[in-house]
């Protein structure tokens, strides 16, 4: 039997966790954000931001480029960390790719119109 009121409460219990999460990814709540940007004409740019640390962005970029047949680059951003940029609208493909690789779909946020 456990009474909630009698439990010892550690006010700093989640503190470390909060710090860890903010340190982990420079973006909000560990989401992986997939965004789109319009360029000139019908061209677009897809950015992937907030990739978890355990994935090698460089290798992922290489796989993306091969899989989607597009070019891309890795951009260092002081706020967001490493951001993968791909040419064209690859949002759907990226999210499919990531989910197939075992990243839970709930953590992937696809933005854009």
């Amino acid at each position: 039997m456990s009474v909630q009121n009698l439990n010892t409460f550690d006010p700093f219990a989640d503190e470390a966790d909060v710090l860890g999460s903010t340190k982990d990814v420079g973006s909000q709540q560990n989401y992986i954000h997939i965004r789109i940007q319009q360029r000139n004409g019908r061209k677009t740019l897809t950015t992937l931001q907030g990739l978890p640390k355990e994935y090698d962005a460089k290798k992922l970029l290489k796989a993306f480029k091969k899989e989607f047949a597009c070019n891309g680059t890795l951009v260092e951003d002081e706020e967001m960390g490493q951001v993968i940029q791909l040419q064209g609208d690859q949002r759907l493909k990226i999210s499919n790719f990531l989910t197939e690789e075992g990243i839970p779909k709930a953590t992937i946020k696809v933005h854009g119109f």
Binding site: S27, Q28, R35, Q37, R39, T47, V75, V83
Partner: peptide
Amino acid sequence: VNAIKTGFQAQVG
């Protein structure tokens, strides 16, 4: 509710 945050903006143009 979540604050609106603009994410990474790539260099365009």
